[in-house]
Design a protein around this nucleic acid. Structure first.
Length: 219
DNA sequence: CGTCCGATGAACT
DNA sequence: GTTCATCGGACGT
């Protein structure tokens, strides 16, 4: 199980389609990404992890979005591509933060993946993090999960629904009840004024791989 | 070209 | 609770 990268009938897994990412409501997509499986395959190493924490960024009005007020620069250009593209940017000069572009072309919404639960090939993830033992600090947080999965800024522009992409998101049939989903304001965007109050962070309740964010209003 | 600073994480006191 | 590593992007000059 989980050893294959194929999507044969009966495998119990399916690649998320373009239409999943091209829904206009980025907040709904952020919620729907909870429980889905992030897959990376670099240097022949296939890693899988379940998405347990996300945040929605809704351009152009959302002042926490890099594409706020239609900001369009070389860095944010990929946000204007159609949903399903990958946007990775460097934060604090150190951390590579993995985002999924959503919505139709020219709509710059994106979802930040903030926490994942390792499912397969944890040995490679541990090695990339310089850790010995699997625990929340392996992949709880947007910077550390990218490091564990091998995701870097150079991967910006990959298209997740492409079966040949080294980064993909699939469904394995895992289902969540609405009462398992926690909601809060977003982390680290206090500068965004009233937009910092939007309840656009979603997480799986009681999951240890949800980041330990401080100063957040749980709702 | 110079300056400011961030959608963080880790190691401190 | 506080400090700080580390650097590309955004913007003003």
């Amino acid at each position: 199980m989980y050893a294959s990268n194929e999507y044969t009938p009966g495998s119990g897994r399916e690649l998320l389609s373009e239409s999943f990412f091209q829904v206009d409501d980025v907040v709904q997509i952020a919620r729907d990404l909870l429980g889905k499986v992030l897959l990376t395959q670099f240097d022949g190493q296939l890693c899988r992890a379940r998405i347990v924490e996300t945040e929605a960024y809704r351009a152009p009005d959302d002042q926490a979005s890099h594409a706020r007020n239609h900001t369009r620069t070389p860095r944010t250009e990929i946000m204007y591509a159609r949903g399903g593209h990958v946007y990775v940017y460097l934060c604090y000069g150190i951390h590579h933060l993995f985002n999924v572009v959503t919505g139709p072309e020219d709509t710059a919404h994106a979802v930040l993946i903030r926490g994942i639960e390792p499912l397969a090939n944890t040995a490679v993830m541990l090695n990339r993090r310089g850790m010995e033992k699997v625990g929340p600090q392996l992949t709880a947080g947007p910077g550390v999960l990218s490091k564990a999965m091998g995701i870097r800024t150079i991967h910006t522009g990959l298209f997740l629904p492409n079966p040949a992409s080294p980064i993909k998101i699939e469904s394995d049939g895992y289902l969540l009840n609405p009462d398992q989903i926690g909601v809060s304001t977003r982390v680290g965007i206090a500068y965004a004024g009233e937009w910092a109050l939007q309840p656009w962070r979603f997480f799986i309740r009681a999951n240890p791989f949800v980041s330990k964010a401080k100063g957040i209003n749980a709702l």
